[in-house]
């Protein structure tokens, strides 16, 4: 049976799609058969971040409405062969996604894949609820910033009350905290929430800390999940998070402000 993992946050623009792409690629790199589904109907973006936008023929709504078969809508990644992408529809409205339709898709995917990642849209409306409904595990993406932490708390409440597991009174959805866009310098200056503070408030296990990094923008420009940029701090931080997700012990990196040398201070070197 596949594990269904939702990547969610409540708040928009915190790094769900970036994290879904990185995480799915990372799991697939470890040989896990992985499919990542874009639930952001009407505003699809995962295809761009994964670099498969030119190859989209069918989408999840075509599958639900019976216009295409699931295997026709799946896009096989050309870099990592155990990875597939199921794009969202760009033209239909959100109501085209139905719970029964999604249930069928997840059931069918469960036969062939080890991990089904669901990239949730922002908010706590229909699309976000559907993305998390079938989850066994949740990666809650949070920025070190008050409104993001509050929204994460909100979405944790939704996971605990409105997921399938909650409704059927099964074991709860396993929750993981992923702090992204973390800037140790600004945290040290007291401009951003500290890691310990976020953890204390949300009190769920910390899966990883992804530093604010220019390499994320570069990766999205070229359509390469940032985890494939093994030189970058963000890529390495995502790789560590995937390892922890699979049960390995890894110390957290990139959480302390780098002590800047004179040269970097003069020229303002930034995170790569």
């Amino acid at each position: 049976m596949a594990q269904v993992v939702v990547v969610t946050s409540g708040k928009g623009g915190v790094g769900k799609t970036t994290s879904s792409a990185a995480f799915a690629t990372g799991l697939a790199q470890r040989g896990k058969k992985t499919v990542v589904i874009d639930f952001d109907v009407g505003l699809r973006n995962l295809d761009l971040i994964m670099g498969v936008e030119r190859r989209v023929v069918f989408d999840i709504v075509n599958v639900i409405s019976g216009e295409a078969r699931l295997n026709q809508a799946l896009i096989r990644d050309k870099r990592v062969d155990t990875l597939s992408i199921l794009p969202a529809s760009q033209t239909r409205d959100k109501d085209a996604l139905t719970r029964d339709g999604v249930a069928k898709i997840i059931e069918e995917l469960s036969k062939d894949f080890d991990y089904i990642l669901c990239d949730s849209p922002a908010g706590i409306e229909k699309g976000a609820l559907l993305a998390l409904y079938f989850a066994d595990q949740a990666v809650v993406v949070t920025n070190p910033e008050v409104s993001s932490v509050r929204d994460s708390d909100r979405i944790l409440g939704v996971l605990q009350s409105r997921s399938k597991r909650a409704e059927e009174k099964k074991d709860p959805v396993k929750e993981h905290l992923l702090v992204t866009r973390f800037d140790p310098v600004r945290v040290e200056r007291g401009e951003m929430l500290k890691l310990e503070d976020i953890q204390e408030i949300l009190s769920i296990p910390l899966l990883g800390v992804i530093p604010e990094s220019e390499s994320v923008l570069k990766a999205s420009n070229t359509g390469t999940p940032v985890i494939l940029d093994a030189e970058s701090m963000a890529g390495q931080a995502y790789a560590d998070a995937v390892s922890r997700f699979l049960g390995e012990e890894k110390p957290h990196r990139f959480i302390e402000a780098e002590k800047k040398g004179l040269f970097k201070r003069l020229f303002g070197g930034r995170a790569a």
Binding site: L48, G51, E53, R54, Q90, T91, L217, K218, S220, N221, T222, G223
Partner: peptide, 22 residues
């Protein structure tokens, strides 16, 4: 930097041209 930004522009032009027709 310029290399990746121009890749972004090219990719967007292609995908948007198709989406606007759609």
């Amino acid at each position: 930097q310029p290399a990746s930004a121009s890749a972004a522009k090219e990719r967007l032009q292609i995908v948007l041209a198709h989406e606007r027709i759609g």
